[in-house]
Structures are given as structure tokens and as C-alpha cells.
Design a protein around this nucleic acid. Structure first.
Lengths: 97, 97
DNA sequence: CGTGTAAGGAATTCTGACACG
DNA sequence: CGTGTAAGGAATTCTGACACG
């Protein structure tokens, strides 16, 4: 697990990185578009991958796509990205000092 | 600025990643070994690079090196790493999708 | 020197709900 | 449907200090 997928960001940090409100970020989770981890205390923790996903979601919503449609697309996206992530991951691992 | 140098981690997250106590992390800052950013409210924010530095600090201290000596080494390290970071950064940027 | 801890306060986040539309 | 907000509470973090050594 690298920096991109570690669930370590607070919702406040994510809000700054994405320019989305806390309300929006929590709502997209409610719609199952993202899945943050939780600390023992219950605080949400996100990864940079989640941040990228949120930015993508935000763009799509502005284009008029519903969260329901985004949810359907999600699984396809995941599978499609899986192969590429594996390759990119190996390349990065190879060059990372 | 990539994921590694963005100041977005809470001290709690850093504590988990490094296995260091909040006290230790704050103390190393007091000794000028790390330099976290701050939110408007005053909460500390670290980068993954800080996490790596902290792990390195922790190891050195266990080896008997003082924080004062570590501070002296710091600048040399920074300069030495600068060139390499630049190269690694460009390579990663090239391969990052 | 490096780290633990109790103390009081402030910043951050959480949930459920009402509102608008 | 997607998002704002006020509400009360809980988790997280902050600082300065005392303690040990």
C-alpha cells in the first residue's frame, strides 16, 4: 500500500484538496461513491485516491450525471483501473528510491 | 507538489504511521527536525515526507544520536536529497497516469 | 535529554434533522 | 436530488508545566 491508497486524510484536508464542502463529501459516501476508513473514535479517513475520485465525481455531477448513474459506473471503473494500477504500481515501485 | 510532500496529515495519522507518540512528534518539531504546516485553527499538518523523516529520526535516536546532531545532519541531507528528488520526481511524473 | 502525563481550552468532526426545491 | 445550516455531543489536538533522570 503506497501513499496514494493509504486512508490517512481527515475530511477537512480532503475538503481543502477537493474544494468540496464537508456536507458534499459525506453525502457522496452516503451514496456509496466513496468508502473512507474510520478511526476508533469514528472520524473518517480518506486516501489520495479518494480525493481523485471525489474530484471526478464533482466534475460528473456538474455535467448533469446523477449519483445513481455514477454508482453504476463505479464498479466498471474499478475493474478497468485494476490492471493499469498494477502495472503503474510496479513501475513506480521499481523507480522509487 | 505531489502526494509525498503535501502537508495534509494530522498528528494522529502520523503517530499511527510512525508508531511514535504525539509527544515525541511535537518534541522533534521543537528541536527543528521537522516543520509541519498549520491549519487556520492551529492544527499541525504533516506530509508523507515528514513521516519518512520521523521514522529516520526515530531510528537514529535509538542508535544513540542526539537531536542536536540530527539537526546538523539535516541540512546536508536536504541538499543531497534535492538532486535525487528532482530526478525521481520527473521519472514518477513521466510514468504517472 | 527525551518522553510521559494530567489540565483546561479550542478546533475538528459526527449524527440526525429541517429546509429548499 | 444535492446541498446548506443550526444543534448538541464526542473525538482530536493545542499549549505550558511538572516529573524523571
Amino acid at each position: 500500500m503506497d501513499y496514494k491508497t493509504k486512508k490517512v486524510l481527515s475530511i477537512g484536508a480532503v475538503s481543502e484538496l477537493t474544494n468540496l464542502s464537508l456536507r458534499q463529501i459525506r453525502y457522496y459516501e452516503e451514496r456509496n461513491l466513496i468508502d473512507p476508513a474510520r478511526t476508533k473514535g469514528g472520524t473518517r479517513q480518506y486516501s489520495f485516491a479518494d480525493v481523485e475520485m471525489l474530484i471526478s465525481i464533482s466534475t460528473k455531477l456538474q455535467e448533469g450525471v446523477s449519483t445513481f448513474e455514477l454508482k453504476k459506473e463505479r464498479k466498471k471503473q474499478e475493474k478497468a483501473n485494476q490492471k493499469q494500477d498494477m502495472i503503474v504500481g510496479q513501475i513506480n515501485a521499481f523507480f522509487r528510491r
